[in-house]
Design a protein around this nucleic acid. Structure first.
Lengths: 248, 248
DNA sequence: CGCGTGCTTGAAGCGGGTCAACAACAGTGG
DNA sequence: CCACTGTTGTTGACCCGCTTCAAGCACGCG
């Protein structure tokens, strides 16, 4: 990875212009600016956190995609969650001593780097931002809850429908969906299978059958949901949409 | 459920005497005391939070067991996590508008009730406690990560071994394990199966085969791990033990 | 052109699910 | 005191969804 000064001032952060992000006060943005140490650029396929290592940093993903994962001793991998622009990562890491999961970049990424040591400062001086940090942690937990329900209790076709819908929803939040409703997903089918606790083969075959329904179009890494209501029905989901959220 | 005044002053909280809990300053405990609205007593099998409802409260579980769960429209249930004494619940709920999971008591429970409205106060006036709240949220997330790895990538025997070891570890944290190393688990096999994404039948049969190894004894809701190293090996786990933690 | 990576598809096996029955036990009411 | 009932645990038989193994295809790139 490649670090350099913070080219993007927080007050000019393009993410902050997205409709979903709650407005921070000018003083808060100023503080975030001092909290930010710089920017880091990572290459697709590169490691942001290594499983088992310690890292003194916190990040907000500015652009690109990444994913958190855990592995078993024999190599089986479980992808825990995807990281999209605006997501804050490293909190679990920071508050625990050792890192028990890895984070890898799916595309080239730009990360805002924050100092772990200054987190206590943030809590002392910016209680409202501290609450935002906690809010983001709670949001991650909700996503994990949903994911757990999926893997534990949904069958493969439901899982796939749910995941694709989930990614579309989050892609929309992060402003990654174009005007035609198309979202470019940078991960391979192997990644998606590892996310869902399925084998690659099952993922692929079930996907074929789902494609035949015409509810969505997904090929060449481009996803478009044609009939969202049906998608939600196939996923056996409730289809709750996200509300406004903070950005650190 | 049945509410009444806070009989247990926080400074005399029996949990605080457990070795695992980090020491709070006297001023912090005083604040927690003012943050506490009272105590709630719930019956075994009772609902603490109903899926889909809104609740204005935050809780710390004083005694007993509970569990968080989600269900699919057709009734399939996934247990997300267990709640043990000292655990703080309701944060996701508080920060989101609607509750998307339920919490149910497994045994009679005693809960410390905190006001949701005063959470902002806590963040404003007690930054160190605010960090503790966030720490607890991050801990929950780690547990969910592990659980996700389990359900997604472990086979049934590994899952069961992992879960029993996990529960033993957390039971130890909460002071529920007696001098003989026995932990009383109040849940049924159906609960455990719903935790692991298995059917009741598979859970039971796999449990029989695991019992035959003699690595642990589990019957009549009493669990004792005879050979912890082997238990960890069967679970394909790394066996990291918890460190000191905060108590709100 | 040759190789690697990702996608697709068929065949065969097994792990876990479903269905079904029964045993052990606690609680309830006649 | 004991039949009746509901809950929990246990076990067998059968089936299906998903895994594993294997092979071929398409495409991009050195």
């Amino acid at each position: 990875m490649n670090g350099d000064g913070g080219q993007t001032p927080c007050r000019a952060c393009p993410l902050r212009r997205l409709p979903l992000f709650a407005n921070a006060t000018s003083a808060e943005v100023d503080f975030i600016e001092t909290f930010k140490m710089g920017e880091l650029h990572g290459k697709a396929g590169g490691t942001i956190y290594l499983e088992g290592a310690t890292s003194p940093h916190l990040f907000t993903l500015l652009s690109g995609w990444a994913f958190r994962y855990k592995t078993l001793p024999d190599g089986r991998r479980q992808i825990l969650n995807y990281v999209l622009p605006g997501d804050f990562i490293g909190l679990q890491t920071t508050l625990a001593e050792t890192l028990d999961h890895g984070i890898e970049a799916l595309t080239d990424v730009r990360l805002c780097v924050f100092s772990r040591d200054r987190l206590a400062d943030l809590f002392r001086n910016q209680p409202s931002l501290a609450l935002d940090v906690t809010w983001l942690a709670a949001r991650d937990e909700r996503i994990l809850d949903d994911h757990l329900l999926s893997i534990g209790r949904r069958r493969s076709r439901e899982r796939i429908a749910y995941l694709l819908w989930h990614l579309m929803t989050r892609g929309r939040e992060s402003g990654l969906v174009d005007d035609d409703g198309v979202l470019v997903l940078p991960m391979t089918q192997q990644h998606l299978a590892d996310t869902l606790g399925l084998s690659l083969v099952t993922f692929n075959k079930t996907l074929q059958r789902l494609r035949a329904t015409g509810i969505f179009v997904f090929g060449d890494r481009r996803l478009k949901i044609v009939d969202e209501a049906k998608m939600i029905a196939v996923a056996a989901a409730d289809g709750v949409r996200p509300r406004s959220r903070p950005l650190i």
